[in-house]
Computed example of a mutant assay.
Amino acid sequence: MKRYAQIISERVHWIFEADELPLYPNPEDFLDITGREDIEEGYLYNIETGEFTAPEPTPIEPQSTLEEMQAQTLLNTEYLVSKSELLGGN
């Protein structure tokens, strides 16, 4: 069984195993990566060098705590009430 990688826009889009490459409209988008268990979906592929590299990790934004979200909601509510009072609302 061989291991294939589909390359789209210089990135490994899909990895699958098959005895032979099935018929696809663009067979040139697939590479035989048999024996390369280190390659994963999402890896970058350099067409000129034929090398694969892992993508840089995407920084994760810290999530607000429940207390921070509640405080922000309270501030927003107080702002809207104050604004309404200043504009003569009921």
Rank of each mutant, 00 (worst) to 15 (best):
39 I>K: 02
8 I>F: 08
76 N>G: 09
67 E>A: 15
19 D>L: 11
50 G>A: 10
37 E>W: 00
18 A>R: 07
31 L>A: 01
8 I>D: 10
39 I>N: 01
4 Y>K: 08
6 Q>D: 12
15 I>P: 02
27 P>C: 07
32 D>A: 07
8 I>C: 07
16 F>P: 06
11 R>M: 15
48 E>A: 12
47 I>W: 04
10 E>V: 00
50 G>L: 06
60 I>M: 03
41 E>S: 10
17 E>P: 01
78 E>H: 05
12 V>C: 02
12 V>T: 04
66 L>H: 11
74 L>V: 14
61 E>Q: 08
52 F>I: 12
78 E>F: 06
62 P>G: 00
69 M>C: 10
61 E>P: 02
21 L>N: 03
26 N>A: 07
87 L>Q: 14
81 V>H: 03
16 F>K: 06
86 L>C: 06
46 N>D: 15
8 I>G: 01
66 L>N: 11
43 Y>M: 01
27 P>Q: 06
16 F>E: 06
28 E>V: 06
35 G>Y: 03
75 L>S: 14
24 Y>I: 05
84 S>E: 02
9 S>A: 15
63 Q>N: 04
2 K>M: 13
68 E>Y: 12
12 V>F: 03
7 I>C: 09
44 L>T: 01
20 E>L: 11
60 I>Y: 01
75 L>C: 06
49 T>V: 11
66 L>K: 12
5 A>F: 04
37 E>M: 02
60 I>V: 13
87 L>M: 14
56 E>I: 13
66 L>Y: 11
32 D>C: 05
24 Y>T: 10
64 S>L: 15
14 W>R: 12
70 Q>G: 07
12 V>M: 02
52 F>Y: 14
23 L>Y: 04
10 E>F: 09
